[in-house]
Amino acid sequence: MDFFLLLLTSGIAVGGIYALIALGFVLIYKATSIINFATGEFMMIGAYIFYTCTVLVGMPAIPAFLMVMAGAGLLGLLVEKTILRHMLGQPTISIVMVTIGLSSILMGLAEIIWSSDFKSFPPLFPRAPIVIGNLIIRSNLFWGFVVAMITVAIFALIFKYAKIGVAMRATAGDQMAAFSMGINVRSMFTLAWIFGSMAASIGGLIIGNIGGVQPNLGGVGLKIFPVVILGGLDSIGGAVIGGFIVGIIENLAGGYLDSLVGGGVKNVAPFIVLVLILMFRPYGLFGRKEIERL
């Protein structure tokens, strides 16, 4: 029973972090309908900026964090302005492939700049594990979860109440209508990329803080696909629920099955669940079938 609770709590903690990364994906998808396969690489770049600022330059954590936000924002801005703007009206396959190409570029560049060795951050949080009852949670995981949840909440609030968030939602709902209401649709697209990149990079910081930074850190980003398909591509709430489901499933499956098949279950379990769910609900658990027109 204790083992189960242990797996469950770490599943929830990891799930919260997945939710944040998925948010980075959903923010962009919602506003622009673009499926960003480079979300994981946005995470990785954020983590490397933080590493560079703290370890190589010697900045304290807070200014380094601000640098990450600035860097991530700039990355999102550049990607939207230089690449995706040219892809407006292109078929989905081309747009998906462009983001796949982008992820390849970022991953290669990171390895050229920072090499493929493991890098780790200076300790950010108190080292002592968190004890709840007779459950023990690793401190980095616990604090990572807390930061992730706070970030998700902030983004959700911005989206729901801030003027700019409302404008973004309007754009997501109906581009033409938003345009005629005087909303600058193009700048909303740019903004979505900036926000999405920022959310992903915070996720990258958390993952990097837990497990170190490497050019293939972005591989974690692939897990957002089970998350968003479970949760629905365009809903922040769905991303959170999907994140928790995936986090819990992979921890339980890994905990109980790894010894039977020799490891690796954590990475494959979410995809098996994904396939099973899509067989019965082809538009995900919470997604809706779109009404198609001729």
Binding site: I83, V98, G101, S104, I105, G108, S116
Partner: peptide
């Protein structure tokens, strides 16, 4: 890594 970058660049440049 250079190969990875070049593959990515080719995809993007050709599509755009």
């Amino acid at each position: 890594p250079l190969q990875t970058v070049v593959f990515g660049l080719l995809i993007v440049v050709f599509l755009v």
